[in-house]
Design a binder for these strands. Sequence first.
DNA 1: TATTGTTATACTCTATAACTATA
DNA 2: TATAGTTATAGAGTATAACAATA
Lengths: 153, 153
Amino acid sequence: MAEPLTSRLGYLLKHAQLNFSQSGARALESLNITGRQLAVLVVLDVAEPLSQLDAAKELGVDRTTMVALIDELEDKGLVERRRSPDDRRKNIVELTAHGKQTLTEGERRHQETEKAFLAGAGLTPIEADLFVRILKRLATDAETPDDQPEDKT
Amino acid sequence: MAEPLTSRLGYLLKHAQLNFSQSGARALESLNITGRQLAVLVVLDVAEPLSQLDAAKELGVDRTTMVALIDELEDKGLVERRRSPDDRRKNIVELTAHGKQTLTEGERRHQETEKAFLAGAGLTPIEADLFVRILKRLATDAETPDDQPEDKT
DNA sequence: TATTGTTATACTCTATAACTATA
DNA sequence: TATAGTTATAGAGTATAACAATA
């Protein structure tokens, strides 16, 4: 009758994401960071150091969430907070030497994981490239027009 | 330096999924069910009615989670529990007439949402089809080989 | 008054442990 | 003893409200 669950787009996106994040977690395990933490390091690794709020906006999370994320990274010695001299309300967050090393190696593993993930599903490089380009459109075209069909039940 | 966040596969999968589930939620809003609840109805709509545990396995959730899901659906009058005569430990869960109507209309809207979502990103039907086939492989090829690279930091 | 970081709190989602009734 | 459903509880993950320091 109804299509099987495994052909539903929502299910597929969710489980593809789950599979990938598990692969990523495995790859980062011995580096002692999570994928989430690596993403924060990526955000923070810019020429002009960011405040916590800037980083939060960049990552698309709340500033209260960013407090906890920075806490974790600081506990591991990967970043350091310091008061901004320009505006003493702000914490400037910068990578430590250890943080930079971890970022470099984490990124290497991340790239490797992406390649392995796409190749592991038997995708040719051309297919993989097409897939990622399509995915990018679906991830960023935030607003599909609101059709809001009539209630016919 | 590092690739921008928006080209990371994990980020793209997560946000594509978020976008889609928001579209789905909007489409189902006036039907008064969530995407999750519709998925449960899909699972339950089979010739041989399922027990709660069977349905949980089918959906890939815990049996305690299924209790709450069935509670919600029963409160809305979409399903009914009855004790299995064969094994009185089991609850057989069946769609009510209202549940069947809701499922039919929900599925119609869901299909419409999928089409709109893929078309909305400017995908041709051929691209959309290819995308879904690739996604299916990525969602189901659960285990990528564990490379577990050396710690080079 | 508004903003940044922080804390306390709450809410969602989900799983584990323990209870009950059945087998 | 084991299984199905249930409840209580706890753990992520994240957000809202309130507070202190600063602007």
